[in-house]
Design a protein around this nucleic acid. Structure first.
Lengths: 239, 239
DNA sequence: GGCGGAAATCCGGTATACTAGAAATGATGT
DNA sequence: ACATCATTTCTAGTATACCGGATTTCCGCC
């Protein structure tokens, strides 16, 4: 599993799209980062045409913001957007759980068990980047088992956006998906209990949301307040 | 309400996108229709760059097919795709019903009643094109009332695709959305009964699917079988 | 007369040139 | 010393040129 979340289409533009998407969900490119078409094109050895197409796709996915005549930036989701995305995600993933339970077979069980083992290994090894990526892939893999390509597309999109959201609102270096919760889902599916699987999934997504966005209103990152917190340090540095 | 389903973004490319989308869901451009970038650009007085971007968006929406090095065409959904789209649509619209029931208020009631009246008027006037368009807009409007922009986007997409699907599999000139079913949904919402509203919506979408795609497997349009049906006619013509 | 291949044509993929608007930088006056 | 305005630079929007692959057309051959 070298690939990230989305298997891209066009050979050339697809590369740019995939790399950018991975970089964004991996938080290698934090929200607000400028994404000038020229420099990115130079980086990849392609023209602006290609980069532009990739950025437009990313914008459609909600991962980058493209305002007219302004340099594209990595999206900085608002709290409302975050809630909206999680709301849709819960709805979609409940359906995924239902459908996968319906179509359940031993191959699924084996694949998911292997995936969870991989997650455990990454977590044990302290590889937090891999942990986050594998957690997201768990959900996409599950969606794939529903046999519904549109559902896969939507889940992929919504999971990616959740990663971005967590990078804005979540406490850093916190594993978003408790592996145990994935195990619980797998168990419910293996038991052939669609309702329990859907409930477990719903609960899991709710927990991810709570861990990431938090129960309170948590206010937009206020630049003034942040700087104020640094004033004492500046005073020390001055002395 | 002059606009069709999607309010587009960029002034220039948005125009092309919107017009093409409308033309496709109105079945003015039947599935399989070639969409050469040059001629479309000439038509709109813009360059291929713009048209290409619009086509790419449409392709992402599942309304056009873009294979490499091949002229884009209006998508011709397969039966499996059709089922997949309806499956997701049911899931999304159930959620819409739930959410709208939660946020219900008199303004919503008035707006929906007015919309349904418009539908009735179009149906009475025998304007089948308007009837179809208004039926689709009912669902998008409802989604808008959920207050969830992502949900609106997904519902819009999925409803558009359903229109296209019905144009392939549905009997022609059949009103897809019985207006009575819309009224039933409105009543359930007005009664503040979220569960009943969700059920009514689910039932409605299921009916739309049944009317369009049909209950049986109905097999892909088999070119051989279709031609065979014409053989007797050819014999007569020969005589 | 229908079939297969070569030439001509069409058309999509990509790079690039040009324009103009936005942001950054520096100059000028109070 | 600061604010305002001019200038310069950066970069997005769009058109267009060029290339190569796909499609069609047409001609000669069986």
């Amino acid at each position: 599993m070298q690939r990230g979340i989305g298997a891209s289409s066009a050979g050339r533009g697809g590369r740019v799209y995939t790399v950018l998407q991975q970089a964004i969900v991996d938080q290698a490119l934090p929200p607000g980062t400028r994404l000038p078409e020229d420099s990115i094109g130079a980086q990849f050895g392609v023209s602006r045409t290609i980069v532009r197409a990739a950025l437009q796709r990313l914008a459609a996915d909600g991962l980058v913001e493209m305002k007219v005549k302004r340099t594209a930036t990595v999206a900085r989701p608002s709290l409302e957007e975050a809630r909206a995305v999680f709301e849709v995600r819960r709805c979609l993933e409940r359906e995924v759980a239902r459908l996968v339970a319906e179509k359940w077979n031993d191959g699924f069980a084996a694949r998911l068990a292997a995936h969870i083992a991989e997650e455990q290994q990454a977590a044990d090894g302290g590889d937090s980047k891999a942990t986050v990526r594998l957690a997201a892939e768990f959900h996409v893999k599950l969606a794939g088992m529903s046999g519904n390509p549109l559902l896969v597309r939507y889940v992929t999109e919504v999971v990616s956006r959740c990663s971005l959201i967590l990078s804005v609102f979540g406490r850093p270096h916190q594993s978003e998906c408790a592996i145990g919760e994935h195990r619980t889902i797998l168990e419910a599916l293996a038991a052939g209990d669609a309702a329990r699987a859907a409930a477990a999934m719903d609960h899991h997504v709710a927990l991810v949301e709570r861990r990431g966005v938090g129960g309170e209103t948590a206010a937009e990152p206020d630049i003034g307040e942040i700087l104020a917190r640094y004033l004492p340090l500046a005073a020390v540095a001055d002395a």
